[in-house]
């Protein structure tokens, strides 16, 4: 069994979340390991939430904005 990481991505509604939508429109393919959480700005992601994601078992956290 190969390692499959669990990734949490915080994406800004106005840029990276829109970019993730556009990736879909363009039918770009990527591995299904990431779960995106939509936020209104990457700046609203409190360090506590990032720590919580690791605590709950995330292997990586992406903050995109």
């Amino acid at each position: 069994m190969s390692f499959e990481p669990k990734i949490i991505g915080f994406t800004c509604n106005w840029c990276s979340y829109a970019a993730a939508d556009l990736a879909g429109v363009s039918r770009m393919q990527y591995p299904p390991n990431v779960r995106l959480v939509r936020v209104m700005c990457s700046g609203m992601v409190h360090p506590k939430v990032v720590a919580r994601a690791f605590e709950k078992g995330a292997d990586a956290v992406l903050v995109m904005g």
Partner: peptide
């Protein structure tokens, strides 16, 4: 829950994984 742009469209070749992701979302 964004199960099209960020799921079915980007994991077209992996229906099972896409279904699991949709359930998560």
């Amino acid at each position: 829950a964004n199960i099209r742009n960020q799921d079915s469209w980007v994991h077209a070749g992996q229906p099972e994984m896409a279904t699991l992701k949709a359930m998560d979302l």
